[in-house]
Design a protein around this nucleic acid. Structure first.
Length: 296
DNA sequence: TTGCAGGGGTCAA
DNA sequence: TTGACCCCTGCA
């Protein structure tokens, strides 16, 4: 069975192995997408593929040129979850065209040609980036892994155990003592504050998603441990705010070096992004971030 | 082996 | 605007 999906590629579904194979997919590479720092729950396998958990399910994603293979994936889940999760419903050719025309961003886009913005689950994304503050990726992943092991649900794939991300009610029911084993340090209180505000409805991520970016950001920043950077990451990676431009140390470095000079403030960097990259600031940030980090 | 600096920021004063 | 912050890692 071959079905035209409508975003420039075709897909085949093999029900005997629960594998979806897409052909003719441009602008997508699993390594670029999962290693550019937007998510912490997908790990690389020996064969170069990536396995991770989202939406309470495990999938394995492998790219080879313009072919994408997704294992442990039903046809229904592909259409309802993974096409959107992986950003395969978005026309990256058009986005890149609108961003190009200047040497630095062109070089960054060429380098990270296969990055797509994932559409992650908002609560998981929020908590993950609260954990990310003043922290390094291996430790962020470790804390999240431990939290899922202790408070998520176990699912098995390929003979290995994986764990779902605990929901807001589960986390809101915990104490700092319960969370002590994950070693999140001072972030533990922030995790609990976020979980309680979301569980109680004081912070409604669906409503925030429908707000314009500046208002959504102000709402998110009512949570302890959520400043401008964490709010921008949450909006960009899970609330479809493509104009959000998270400014972290790497982005500061590269924007100063390439565009604005040593003395540019974070405010000036944000303003520059809005003017230069507009509604696609977020994906531009990912290209620049990946380019900066991979090249020191 | 031990000690120290610094890390995908944020809070509080 | 500035220091402190949990804990971990890399590096003398």
């Amino acid at each position: 069975m071959v079905i035209y999906v409508g975003n420039g590629y075709e897909y085949k579904f093999d029900s005997s192995t629960n594998t979806v194979t897409l052909t003719g997919v441009e602008h997508f590479d699993a390594g670029h997408t999962f290693l550019c720092g937007q998510c912490f729950r997908f790990d690389q396998e020996d064969d170069g593929s990536f396995t991770g958990v989202a939406h309470g399910k495990v999938i394995n994603v492998k790219t080879n040129g313009t072919t994408v293979q997704i294992r442990n994936c039903t046809e229904e889940d592909f259409k309802n979850l993974w096409e959107r999760f992986l950003g395969l419903d978005t026309d990256y050719g058009a986005i890149k065209e609108s961003l190009s025309g200047e040497e630095h961003i062109d070089k960054a886009m060429e380098f990270g040609w296969g990055i797509r913005l994932l559409n992650q689950e908002p609560f998981e994304c929020l908590i993950s980036f609260v954990i990310s503050t003043q922290n390094q990726i291996p430790r962020i992943k470790k804390i999240i892994r431990k939290m899922c092991e202790l408070f998520g649900d176990k699912i098995t794939f390929d003979g290995k155990d994986y764990y779902t991300f605990p929901n807001c009610h589960k986390l809101a029911s915990l104490t700092e003592e319960d969370l002590a084993p994950i070693n999140a340090g001072y972030r533990t209180a922030y995790i609990l504050d976020a979980a309680k505000k979301v569980a109680s409805g004081e912070i409604d991520l669906d409503i925030i998603c429908a707000l314009p970016t500046d208002k959504a950001k102000a709402e998110l920043m009512k949570i302890k441990g959520v400043g401008p950077k964490v709010a921008d990451c949450t909006m960009l990676f899970s609330l479809q705010k493509g104009d959000a431009f998270p400014v972290d140390v790497w982005v500061q470095r590269i924007v100063r070096q390439l565009y604005l000079g040593e003395n540019a403030s974070i405010k000036e960097i944000s303003a520059f992004a809005g003017e230069r990259f507009g509604m696609h600031s977020g994906i531009a940030q990912q290209y620049l971030f990946f380019y900066a980090r991979e090249n020191g």
